[in-house]
Design a protein around this nucleic acid. Structure first.
Lengths: 254, 254
DNA sequence: TTCAGCATTTCGAAATCTCGAACGGCGACT
DNA sequence: AGTCGCCGTTCGAGATTTCGAAATGCTGAA
Protein backbone atom coordinates (compact mmCIF):
# COMPACT_ATOMS: atom_id res chain seq x y z
CA UNK A 1 0.00 0.00 0.00
CA UNK A 2 3.05 2.25 0.23
CA UNK A 3 2.21 3.80 -3.13
CA UNK A 4 5.57 4.45 -4.62
CA UNK A 5 5.90 5.89 -8.07
CA UNK A 6 7.45 3.30 -10.38
CA UNK A 7 8.69 5.73 -12.97
CA UNK A 8 9.02 8.84 -10.91
CA UNK A 9 9.37 12.20 -12.58
CA UNK A 10 12.38 13.35 -10.63
CA UNK A 11 12.41 16.82 -12.08
CA UNK A 12 8.99 17.53 -10.70
CA UNK A 13 10.00 16.24 -7.33
CA UNK A 14 12.98 18.55 -7.39
CA UNK A 15 10.81 21.52 -8.21
CA UNK A 16 8.50 20.67 -5.36
CA UNK A 17 11.47 20.31 -3.04
CA UNK A 18 12.54 23.77 -4.02
CA UNK A 19 9.12 25.21 -3.25
CA UNK A 20 8.94 23.44 0.09
CA UNK A 21 12.39 24.57 1.06
CA UNK A 22 11.48 28.09 0.09
CA UNK A 23 8.61 27.86 2.49
CA UNK A 24 10.73 26.42 5.28
CA UNK A 25 13.24 29.21 4.82
CA UNK A 26 10.43 31.76 4.61
CA UNK A 27 11.84 33.09 1.36
CA UNK A 28 15.46 32.88 0.26
CA UNK A 29 18.00 34.18 -2.20
CA UNK A 30 19.28 31.99 -4.96
CA UNK A 31 22.62 31.07 -3.41
CA UNK A 32 21.21 30.42 0.06
CA UNK A 33 18.67 28.09 -1.44
CA UNK A 34 21.16 26.30 -3.67
CA UNK A 35 23.51 25.83 -0.72
CA UNK A 36 20.77 24.44 1.47
CA UNK A 37 19.65 22.00 -1.22
CA UNK A 38 23.22 21.22 -2.19
CA UNK A 39 22.53 21.86 -5.86
CA UNK A 40 24.33 24.05 -8.37
CA UNK A 41 22.78 27.46 -8.49
CA UNK A 42 22.13 27.18 -12.20
CA UNK A 43 19.84 24.25 -11.61
CA UNK A 44 17.96 26.03 -8.86
CA UNK A 45 17.79 29.10 -11.02
CA UNK A 46 16.23 27.22 -13.91
CA UNK A 47 13.60 25.70 -11.68
CA UNK A 48 12.81 29.01 -10.06
CA UNK A 49 12.44 30.80 -13.40
CA UNK A 50 10.05 28.13 -14.56
CA UNK A 51 8.06 28.32 -11.35
CA UNK A 52 8.01 32.09 -11.61
CA UNK A 53 6.78 32.04 -15.16
CA UNK A 54 3.98 29.74 -14.08
CA UNK A 55 3.31 32.07 -11.16
CA UNK A 56 3.95 29.63 -8.34
CA UNK A 57 6.94 31.54 -7.09
CA UNK A 58 7.66 35.24 -7.03
CA UNK A 59 10.69 37.39 -6.53
CA UNK A 60 10.79 40.31 -4.10
CA UNK A 61 13.98 42.10 -4.92
CA UNK A 62 16.35 39.15 -4.89
CA UNK A 63 14.35 37.01 -2.52
CA UNK A 64 12.30 34.19 -3.96
CA UNK A 65 9.03 33.33 -2.24
CA UNK A 66 6.08 30.98 -2.47
CA UNK A 67 3.23 32.75 -4.24
CA UNK A 68 -0.50 33.02 -3.71
CA UNK A 69 -1.14 30.74 -6.69
CA UNK A 70 -1.15 27.95 -4.14
CA UNK A 71 -4.01 29.62 -2.33
CA UNK A 72 -6.12 29.39 -5.45
CA UNK A 73 -5.69 25.64 -5.71
CA UNK A 74 -5.80 25.20 -1.95
CA UNK A 75 -9.11 26.99 -1.52
CA UNK A 76 -10.49 24.98 -4.37
CA UNK A 77 -9.46 21.75 -2.65
CA UNK A 78 -10.94 22.95 0.64
CA UNK A 79 -14.27 23.93 -0.86
CA UNK A 80 -14.65 20.57 -2.51
CA UNK A 81 -15.27 19.26 1.00
CA UNK A 82 -18.92 19.80 1.71
CA UNK A 83 -18.26 19.70 5.43
CA UNK A 84 -16.11 22.82 5.30
CA UNK A 85 -18.75 25.50 4.77
CA UNK A 86 -21.33 23.62 6.79
CA UNK A 87 -19.17 23.07 9.84
CA UNK A 88 -17.58 26.51 9.95
CA UNK A 89 -20.42 28.22 11.88
CA UNK A 90 -20.49 25.42 14.45
CA UNK A 91 -16.74 25.66 14.95
CA UNK A 92 -17.06 29.39 15.46
CA UNK A 93 -19.79 28.82 18.02
CA UNK A 94 -17.77 26.20 19.85
CA UNK A 95 -14.83 28.57 20.06
CA UNK A 96 -17.03 31.40 21.29
CA UNK A 97 -18.85 29.29 23.88
CA UNK A 98 -15.80 27.55 25.29
CA UNK A 99 -13.34 30.40 24.90
CA UNK A 100 -10.77 27.89 23.64
CA UNK A 101 -9.59 26.90 20.17
CA UNK A 102 -12.04 24.85 18.07
CA UNK A 103 -10.97 22.89 15.00
CA UNK A 104 -12.16 20.99 11.97
CA UNK A 105 -10.00 18.23 10.51
CA UNK A 106 -10.42 15.82 7.62
CA UNK A 107 -8.43 12.86 6.39
CA UNK A 108 -6.55 12.97 3.11
CA UNK A 109 -3.83 10.70 1.79
CA UNK A 110 -3.57 9.14 5.26
CA UNK A 111 -2.83 12.50 6.85
CA UNK A 112 -5.02 14.59 9.07
CA UNK A 113 -5.51 18.03 7.54
CA UNK A 114 -6.97 21.00 9.41
CA UNK A 115 -9.59 22.80 7.34
CA UNK A 116 -10.56 25.43 9.86
CA UNK A 117 -9.62 26.63 13.29
CA UNK A 118 -11.18 29.34 15.39
CA UNK A 119 -9.86 31.05 18.49
CA UNK A 120 -12.10 31.82 21.47
CA UNK A 121 -11.47 34.54 24.02
CA UNK A 122 -9.09 32.58 26.23
CA UNK A 123 -7.37 30.76 23.44
CA UNK A 124 -3.64 30.33 23.69
CA UNK A 125 -1.51 30.59 20.57
CA UNK A 126 -1.20 27.21 18.87
CA UNK A 127 0.59 25.90 15.81
CA UNK A 128 -2.69 24.98 14.15
CA UNK A 129 -3.62 26.64 10.88
CA UNK A 130 -5.76 25.58 7.94
CA UNK A 131 -3.85 23.25 5.64
CA UNK A 132 -1.64 21.93 8.41
CA UNK A 133 -0.95 18.21 8.08
CA UNK A 134 -0.67 16.05 11.19
CA UNK A 135 -0.35 12.37 11.94
CA UNK A 136 -3.74 10.83 12.62
CA UNK A 137 -2.68 8.81 15.66
CA UNK A 138 -1.46 11.78 17.67
CA UNK A 139 -4.55 13.98 17.91
CA UNK A 140 -8.03 13.53 19.28
CA UNK A 141 -9.34 14.47 15.84
CA UNK A 142 -7.23 11.90 14.07
CA UNK A 143 -8.14 9.17 16.51
CA UNK A 144 -11.82 9.88 15.94
CA UNK A 145 -11.32 9.45 12.23
CA UNK A 146 -9.27 6.28 12.60
CA UNK A 147 -11.91 4.87 14.92
CA UNK A 148 -14.42 4.98 12.10
CA UNK A 149 -12.26 3.57 9.33
CA UNK A 150 -11.94 -0.13 8.55
CA UNK A 151 -9.13 -2.11 10.15
CA UNK A 152 -7.53 -2.39 6.72
CA UNK A 153 -7.48 1.34 6.24
CA UNK A 154 -6.04 1.85 9.73
CA UNK A 155 -3.29 -0.63 8.94
CA UNK A 156 -2.58 1.20 5.69
CA UNK A 157 -2.29 4.49 7.54
CA UNK A 158 0.15 2.97 10.04
CA UNK A 159 2.12 1.43 7.20
CA UNK A 160 2.35 4.64 5.21
CA UNK A 161 2.76 7.27 7.88
CA UNK A 162 4.04 5.32 10.86
CA UNK A 163 3.30 6.05 14.51
CA UNK A 164 6.07 8.51 15.37
CA UNK A 165 6.16 9.93 18.87
CA UNK A 166 5.31 13.62 19.03
CA UNK A 167 5.59 13.80 22.83
CA UNK A 168 6.20 11.32 25.65
CA UNK A 169 2.50 10.48 25.68
CA UNK A 170 1.98 9.73 22.00
CA UNK A 171 0.60 6.27 21.29
CA UNK A 172 3.36 4.60 19.28
CA UNK A 173 2.22 1.01 19.42
CA UNK A 174 -0.31 -0.43 16.96
CA UNK A 175 -2.02 -2.64 19.54
CA UNK A 176 -2.32 0.18 22.04
CA UNK A 177 -3.80 2.29 19.27
CA UNK A 178 -6.35 -0.40 18.44
CA UNK A 179 -7.43 -0.48 22.10
CA UNK A 180 -7.69 3.28 22.16
CA UNK A 181 -9.83 3.25 19.03
CA UNK A 182 -12.16 0.73 20.66
CA UNK A 183 -12.53 3.10 23.59
CA UNK A 184 -13.19 6.02 21.26
CA UNK A 185 -15.93 4.10 19.49
CA UNK A 186 -17.54 3.28 22.81
CA UNK A 187 -17.28 6.76 24.32
CA UNK A 188 -18.20 8.64 21.17
CA UNK A 189 -15.29 11.01 21.62
CA UNK A 190 -11.50 10.97 21.81
CA UNK A 191 -9.14 12.75 24.15
CA UNK A 192 -5.62 13.85 23.35
CA UNK A 193 -3.75 14.31 26.62
CA UNK A 194 -0.53 15.98 25.56
CA UNK A 195 -0.05 13.41 22.82
CA UNK A 196 0.80 15.87 20.09
CA UNK A 197 1.98 18.92 21.99
CA UNK A 198 3.21 19.06 25.58
CA UNK A 199 0.87 21.09 27.74
CA UNK A 200 -2.07 20.78 25.40
CA UNK A 201 -5.23 18.78 25.86
CA UNK A 202 -7.89 18.26 23.31
CA UNK A 203 -11.27 16.54 22.97
CA UNK A 204 -12.69 15.58 19.61
CA UNK A 205 -15.53 13.72 17.98
CA UNK A 206 -16.23 12.33 14.55
CA UNK A 207 -18.66 13.77 12.01
CA UNK A 208 -20.33 11.17 9.82
CA UNK A 209 -22.23 11.34 6.57
CA UNK A 210 -25.70 9.94 6.00
CA UNK A 211 -24.19 6.68 4.85
CA UNK A 212 -22.17 6.35 8.04
CA UNK A 213 -18.71 7.23 6.72
CA UNK A 214 -16.52 9.65 8.65
CA UNK A 215 -16.19 12.88 6.73
CA UNK A 216 -14.20 14.73 9.36
CA UNK A 217 -13.82 15.47 13.04
CA UNK A 218 -14.21 18.50 15.27
CA UNK A 219 -12.44 19.36 18.50
CA UNK A 220 -11.75 21.84 21.24
CA UNK A 221 -8.13 22.31 22.39
CA UNK A 222 -6.54 24.23 25.19
CA UNK A 223 -3.74 24.27 27.74
CA UNK A 224 -3.79 21.38 30.20
CA UNK A 225 -4.30 23.81 33.07
CA UNK A 226 -7.54 25.11 31.57
CA UNK A 227 -8.76 21.68 30.55
CA UNK A 228 -9.18 19.49 33.64
CA UNK A 229 -10.47 16.03 32.82
CA UNK A 230 -13.92 16.63 34.30
CA UNK A 231 -14.41 19.70 32.14
CA UNK A 232 -13.49 17.64 29.08
CA UNK A 233 -15.73 14.68 29.77
CA UNK A 234 -18.50 16.87 31.08
CA UNK A 235 -19.38 20.17 29.49
CA UNK A 236 -17.03 19.99 26.51
CA UNK A 237 -17.98 16.48 25.41
CA UNK A 238 -21.63 17.45 25.49
CA UNK A 239 -21.18 20.65 23.50
CA UNK A 240 -18.98 18.85 21.03
CA UNK A 241 -21.41 16.00 20.42
CA UNK A 242 -24.20 18.49 19.98
CA UNK A 243 -22.25 20.44 17.40
CA UNK A 244 -21.29 17.27 15.53
CA UNK A 245 -24.92 16.32 15.43
CA UNK A 246 -25.96 19.65 13.98
CA UNK A 247 -23.27 19.39 11.32
CA UNK A 248 -24.35 15.88 10.42
CA UNK A 249 -27.90 17.07 9.93
CA UNK A 250 -26.77 19.95 7.75
CA UNK A 251 -24.64 17.61 5.66
CA UNK A 252 -27.51 15.17 5.25
CA UNK A 253 -30.10 17.76 4.30
CA UNK A 254 -28.43 20.19 1.95
CA UNK B 1 10.11 42.78 -18.15
CA UNK B 2 8.26 39.88 -19.69
CA UNK B 3 10.27 37.52 -17.51
CA UNK B 4 10.59 34.44 -19.62
CA UNK B 5 12.57 31.52 -18.38
CA UNK B 6 15.65 31.08 -20.53
CA UNK B 7 16.26 27.47 -19.69
CA UNK B 8 12.81 26.40 -18.72
CA UNK B 9 12.30 23.16 -16.88
CA UNK B 10 9.66 21.78 -19.18
CA UNK B 11 8.92 18.74 -17.10
CA UNK B 12 7.87 20.89 -14.19
CA UNK B 13 5.66 22.96 -16.42
CA UNK B 14 4.02 19.79 -17.62
CA UNK B 15 3.35 18.66 -14.08
CA UNK B 16 1.81 22.00 -13.26
CA UNK B 17 -0.32 21.81 -16.39
CA UNK B 18 -1.58 18.48 -15.22
CA UNK B 19 -2.52 19.85 -11.82
CA UNK B 20 -4.26 22.85 -13.33
CA UNK B 21 -6.17 20.73 -15.78
CA UNK B 22 -7.20 18.45 -12.95
CA UNK B 23 -8.64 21.45 -11.23
CA UNK B 24 -10.42 22.70 -14.35
CA UNK B 25 -11.95 19.29 -14.84
CA UNK B 26 -12.80 19.09 -11.14
CA UNK B 27 -11.06 15.74 -10.88
CA UNK B 28 -10.55 13.28 -13.72
CA UNK B 29 -9.62 9.74 -14.58
CA UNK B 30 -6.32 8.97 -16.19
CA UNK B 31 -7.57 8.53 -19.73
CA UNK B 32 -9.84 11.56 -19.67
CA UNK B 33 -6.96 13.67 -18.52
CA UNK B 34 -4.49 12.24 -21.02
CA UNK B 35 -6.99 12.81 -23.84
CA UNK B 36 -7.63 16.37 -22.80
CA UNK B 37 -3.90 17.13 -22.62
CA UNK B 38 -3.19 15.13 -25.74
CA UNK B 39 -0.44 13.16 -24.04
CA UNK B 40 0.15 9.42 -23.79
CA UNK B 41 -1.45 8.05 -20.69
CA UNK B 42 1.83 6.59 -19.53
CA UNK B 43 3.33 10.07 -19.31
CA UNK B 44 0.38 11.43 -17.43
CA UNK B 45 0.48 8.42 -15.20
CA UNK B 46 4.13 8.99 -14.32
CA UNK B 47 3.47 12.59 -13.41
CA UNK B 48 0.43 11.74 -11.38
CA UNK B 49 2.23 9.03 -9.41
CA UNK B 50 4.98 11.46 -8.60
CA UNK B 51 2.55 14.14 -7.54
CA UNK B 52 0.67 11.62 -5.46
CA UNK B 53 3.79 10.45 -3.72
CA UNK B 54 4.58 14.04 -2.87
CA UNK B 55 0.97 14.48 -1.70
CA UNK B 56 -0.07 17.20 -4.13
CA UNK B 57 -2.57 14.95 -5.84
CA UNK B 58 -4.78 12.22 -4.49
CA UNK B 59 -6.80 9.41 -5.95
CA UNK B 60 -10.44 8.77 -5.02
CA UNK B 61 -11.23 5.42 -6.49
CA UNK B 62 -9.97 6.04 -10.01
CA UNK B 63 -10.42 9.77 -10.01
CA UNK B 64 -7.37 11.96 -9.52
CA UNK B 65 -7.84 15.22 -7.66
CA UNK B 66 -5.93 18.25 -6.43
CA UNK B 67 -5.06 17.74 -2.78
CA UNK B 68 -5.11 19.89 0.32
CA UNK B 69 -1.32 20.15 0.29
CA UNK B 70 -1.86 23.29 -1.74
CA UNK B 71 -3.88 24.77 1.10
CA UNK B 72 -0.90 24.44 3.38
CA UNK B 73 1.34 26.47 1.09
CA UNK B 74 -1.49 28.81 0.13
CA UNK B 75 -2.37 29.71 3.70
CA UNK B 76 1.27 30.26 4.39
CA UNK B 77 1.50 32.68 1.47
CA UNK B 78 -1.65 34.46 2.60
CA UNK B 79 -0.51 34.88 6.18
CA UNK B 80 2.75 36.39 5.09
CA UNK B 81 0.68 39.42 4.14
CA UNK B 82 0.31 41.48 7.26
CA UNK B 83 -2.79 43.12 5.85
CA UNK B 84 -4.71 39.86 5.75
CA UNK B 85 -5.41 39.31 9.45
CA UNK B 86 -5.68 43.01 10.14
CA UNK B 87 -8.17 43.78 7.40
CA UNK B 88 -10.40 40.75 7.89
CA UNK B 89 -12.54 42.22 10.69
CA UNK B 90 -13.08 45.42 8.72
CA UNK B 91 -14.13 43.46 5.67
CA UNK B 92 -16.57 41.48 7.77
CA UNK B 93 -18.00 44.70 9.14
CA UNK B 94 -18.32 46.25 5.70
CA UNK B 95 -20.21 43.21 4.48
CA UNK B 96 -22.49 43.23 7.50
CA UNK B 97 -23.20 46.96 7.33
CA UNK B 98 -23.80 47.14 3.59
CA UNK B 99 -25.42 43.74 3.13
CA UNK B 100 -23.33 43.26 -0.01
CA UNK B 101 -20.08 41.44 -0.74
CA UNK B 102 -16.90 43.02 0.67
CA UNK B 103 -13.44 42.08 -0.55
CA UNK B 104 -9.72 42.36 0.09
CA UNK B 105 -7.27 42.18 -2.81
CA UNK B 106 -3.50 42.43 -3.10
CA UNK B 107 -1.11 42.60 -6.03
CA UNK B 108 1.25 39.75 -6.79
CA UNK B 109 3.23 38.99 -9.92
CA UNK B 110 1.22 41.69 -11.71
CA UNK B 111 -2.06 39.96 -10.92
CA UNK B 112 -4.76 41.00 -8.51
CA UNK B 113 -5.34 38.25 -5.96
CA UNK B 114 -8.31 38.15 -3.60
CA UNK B 115 -7.27 37.33 -0.05
CA UNK B 116 -10.67 37.50 1.57
CA UNK B 117 -14.27 38.01 0.67
CA UNK B 118 -17.29 38.23 2.92
CA UNK B 119 -20.96 38.02 2.03
CA UNK B 120 -23.54 40.32 3.61
CA UNK B 121 -27.22 39.57 3.97
CA UNK B 122 -28.30 40.67 0.51
CA UNK B 123 -25.22 39.42 -1.24
CA UNK B 124 -25.69 37.76 -4.60
CA UNK B 125 -23.54 34.77 -5.53
CA UNK B 126 -20.32 35.91 -7.18
CA UNK B 127 -17.32 34.18 -8.66
CA UNK B 128 -15.01 35.70 -6.08
CA UNK B 129 -13.12 33.43 -3.71
CA UNK B 130 -9.82 33.75 -1.86
CA UNK B 131 -6.90 32.99 -4.15
CA UNK B 132 -8.75 34.06 -7.28
CA UNK B 133 -6.51 35.89 -9.73
CA UNK B 134 -7.89 38.79 -11.79
CA UNK B 135 -6.50 41.38 -14.16
CA UNK B 136 -5.74 44.58 -12.31
CA UNK B 137 -7.26 46.91 -14.91
CA UNK B 138 -10.72 45.39 -14.81
CA UNK B 139 -11.72 45.80 -11.18
CA UNK B 140 -12.12 48.73 -8.84
CA UNK B 141 -9.64 47.06 -6.53
CA UNK B 142 -7.05 46.59 -9.21
CA UNK B 143 -7.43 50.17 -10.43
CA UNK B 144 -6.84 51.43 -6.89
CA UNK B 145 -3.63 49.48 -6.73
CA UNK B 146 -2.44 50.58 -10.15
CA UNK B 147 -3.21 54.18 -9.24
CA UNK B 148 -0.60 54.01 -6.49
CA UNK B 149 2.14 52.25 -8.40
CA UNK B 150 4.80 54.04 -10.43
CA UNK B 151 4.19 54.60 -14.14
CA UNK B 152 6.95 52.12 -14.85
CA UNK B 153 5.28 49.42 -12.83
CA UNK B 154 1.94 50.12 -14.51
CA UNK B 155 3.59 49.79 -17.91
CA UNK B 156 5.15 46.53 -16.82
CA UNK B 157 1.76 45.20 -15.74
CA UNK B 158 0.22 46.14 -19.07
CA UNK B 159 3.15 44.58 -20.90
CA UNK B 160 2.97 41.31 -18.97
CA UNK B 161 -0.76 40.81 -18.51
CA UNK B 162 -2.28 42.94 -21.24
CA UNK B 163 -5.58 44.76 -21.04
CA UNK B 164 -8.03 42.10 -22.22
CA UNK B 165 -11.72 42.99 -22.32
CA UNK B 166 -13.77 41.16 -19.70
CA UNK B 167 -17.03 42.89 -20.68
CA UNK B 168 -18.06 45.62 -23.12
CA UNK B 169 -17.11 48.23 -20.54
CA UNK B 170 -13.60 47.07 -19.67
CA UNK B 171 -10.91 49.69 -20.20
CA UNK B 172 -8.70 48.18 -22.90
CA UNK B 173 -6.66 51.22 -23.87
CA UNK B 174 -3.51 52.23 -22.00
CA UNK B 175 -4.19 55.97 -22.33
CA UNK B 176 -7.76 55.63 -21.15
CA UNK B 177 -6.45 53.63 -18.23
CA UNK B 178 -3.94 56.36 -17.35
CA UNK B 179 -6.76 58.93 -17.31
CA UNK B 180 -8.86 56.65 -15.14
CA UNK B 181 -5.98 56.22 -12.72
CA UNK B 182 -5.61 60.00 -12.46
CA UNK B 183 -9.28 60.21 -11.57
CA UNK B 184 -8.89 57.46 -8.99
CA UNK B 185 -6.00 59.29 -7.33
CA UNK B 186 -8.07 62.46 -7.17
CA UNK B 187 -11.28 60.87 -5.90
CA UNK B 188 -9.63 58.52 -3.47
CA UNK B 189 -11.70 55.60 -4.69
CA UNK B 190 -12.32 53.63 -7.89
CA UNK B 191 -15.55 52.40 -9.41
CA UNK B 192 -15.98 49.32 -11.55
CA UNK B 193 -19.17 49.71 -13.58
CA UNK B 194 -19.66 46.29 -15.13
CA UNK B 195 -16.04 46.26 -16.26
CA UNK B 196 -15.28 42.76 -15.06
CA UNK B 197 -18.69 41.14 -14.84
CA UNK B 198 -21.88 42.26 -16.58
CA UNK B 199 -24.47 43.37 -14.06
CA UNK B 200 -21.97 43.96 -11.29
CA UNK B 201 -20.83 47.24 -9.84
CA UNK B 202 -18.07 47.72 -7.37
CA UNK B 203 -16.39 50.50 -5.42
CA UNK B 204 -12.91 50.16 -4.00
CA UNK B 205 -10.16 52.08 -2.29
CA UNK B 206 -6.48 51.55 -1.67
CA UNK B 207 -4.87 50.63 1.63
CA UNK B 208 -1.40 52.07 2.12
CA UNK B 209 1.43 51.31 4.48
CA UNK B 210 3.14 53.83 6.73
CA UNK B 211 5.70 54.48 4.01
CA UNK B 212 2.99 55.27 1.49
CA UNK B 213 3.12 52.10 -0.60
CA UNK B 214 -0.09 50.34 -1.54
CA UNK B 215 -0.36 47.07 0.29
CA UNK B 216 -3.83 46.15 -0.94
CA UNK B 217 -7.31 47.40 -1.68
CA UNK B 218 -10.77 46.84 -0.26
CA UNK B 219 -14.12 47.00 -1.97
CA UNK B 220 -17.86 46.45 -1.86
CA UNK B 221 -19.55 44.76 -4.83
CA UNK B 222 -23.13 44.10 -5.76
CA UNK B 223 -25.62 43.86 -8.60
CA UNK B 224 -26.03 47.06 -10.62
CA UNK B 225 -29.66 47.28 -9.56
CA UNK B 226 -28.72 47.44 -5.89
CA UNK B 227 -25.80 49.79 -6.48
CA UNK B 228 -27.09 53.07 -7.94
CA UNK B 229 -24.32 55.57 -8.51
CA UNK B 230 -25.40 57.87 -5.71
CA UNK B 231 -25.27 55.04 -3.22
CA UNK B 232 -21.75 54.25 -4.38
CA UNK B 233 -20.36 57.78 -4.21
CA UNK B 234 -22.28 58.57 -1.09
CA UNK B 235 -22.69 56.09 1.70
CA UNK B 236 -20.47 53.35 0.34
CA UNK B 237 -17.48 55.56 -0.47
CA UNK B 238 -17.59 56.99 3.02
CA UNK B 239 -17.79 53.63 4.77
CA UNK B 240 -15.04 52.26 2.57
CA UNK B 241 -12.64 55.14 3.20
CA UNK B 242 -13.29 54.85 6.91
CA UNK B 243 -12.52 51.14 6.89
CA UNK B 244 -9.36 51.69 4.85
CA UNK B 245 -8.24 54.27 7.36
CA UNK B 246 -8.77 51.91 10.29
CA UNK B 247 -6.79 49.20 8.52
CA UNK B 248 -3.97 51.60 7.76
CA UNK B 249 -3.75 52.54 11.41
CA UNK B 250 -3.72 48.90 12.47
CA UNK B 251 -0.99 48.12 9.96
CA UNK B 252 1.09 51.08 11.12
CA UNK B 253 0.76 50.36 14.83
CA UNK B 254 1.12 46.61 15.22
C1' DT C 1 38.21 52.39 -10.71
C1' DT C 2 38.64 48.04 -8.77
C1' DC C 3 36.84 44.40 -6.37
C1' DA C 4 33.70 41.15 -4.34
C1' DG C 5 29.57 38.81 -4.18
C1' DC C 6 25.82 37.18 -6.34
C1' DA C 7 22.56 36.25 -10.16
C1' DT C 8 22.34 34.74 -14.70
C1' DT C 9 23.67 32.49 -19.02
C1' DT C 10 26.22 29.15 -21.83
C1' DC C 11 26.99 24.59 -23.65
C1' DG C 12 28.35 19.75 -23.98
C1' DA C 13 27.94 15.39 -21.49
C1' DA C 14 24.97 12.53 -19.17
C1' DA C 15 20.97 11.39 -17.04
C1' DT C 16 16.08 11.62 -17.53
C1' DC C 17 11.73 11.73 -19.48
C1' DT C 18 8.74 10.38 -23.22
C1' DC C 19 6.00 7.34 -25.73
C1' DG C 20 4.35 3.13 -28.06
C1' DA C 21 3.40 -1.29 -26.93
C1' DA C 22 2.35 -4.97 -24.09
C1' DC C 23 0.38 -6.54 -19.74
C1' DG C 24 -3.17 -7.40 -16.42
C1' DG C 25 -7.37 -6.52 -13.85
C1' DC C 26 -12.20 -5.68 -13.88
C1' DG C 27 -16.81 -5.55 -15.34
C1' DA C 28 -20.27 -6.06 -19.03
C1' DC C 29 -22.38 -8.60 -22.24
C1' DT C 30 -23.33 -13.00 -24.70
C1' DA D 1 -18.49 -19.40 -17.92
C1' DG D 2 -16.29 -17.23 -21.40
C1' DT D 3 -15.14 -13.41 -24.19
C1' DC D 4 -14.56 -8.82 -25.14
C1' DG D 5 -13.38 -4.21 -24.31
C1' DC D 6 -11.87 -0.62 -21.40
C1' DC D 7 -8.65 1.30 -18.52
C1' DG D 8 -4.77 1.70 -15.53
C1' DT D 9 -0.15 0.25 -15.08
C1' DT D 10 4.51 -1.37 -16.41
C1' DC D 11 8.51 -1.67 -19.53
C1' DG D 12 12.44 -0.35 -22.37
C1' DA D 13 14.66 1.91 -26.16
C1' DG D 14 15.32 6.25 -28.06
C1' DA D 15 15.17 11.24 -27.92
C1' DT D 16 15.17 15.26 -25.28
C1' DT D 17 16.05 17.51 -21.50
C1' DT D 18 18.30 18.61 -17.50
C1' DC D 19 22.49 19.19 -15.05
C1' DG D 20 26.54 21.44 -13.58
C1' DA D 21 31.21 23.72 -14.21
C1' DA D 22 32.70 27.68 -15.69
C1' DA D 23 32.19 32.10 -17.91
C1' DT D 24 29.66 36.36 -17.99
C1' DG D 25 27.23 40.19 -16.25
C1' DC D 26 25.41 43.09 -12.78
C1' DT D 27 25.40 45.93 -8.50
C1' DG D 28 27.14 48.11 -4.76
C1' DA D 29 31.10 48.95 -1.70
C1' DA D 30 35.81 50.34 -0.91
Amino acid sequence: MAREAKNPVKTTRRSLDIVETLREMDGARLTELADRLDLPNSTVHNHLSTLMEADYVLKDDDVYRVSLRFLDLGEYARNRRKIYELAKPEIEELAAETGEVANLLVEENDWGVYLWSSKGENAVPLDIHPGKHVHLHATSLGKCILAHLSDKRVEAVIERRGLPAQTDSTITDADALADELDAVREQGYAIDDEERLPGMRCIGTAVKSESGNVIGAISVSGPTSAMPMDRLTDTLAEKLLGAANVIELKVAYS
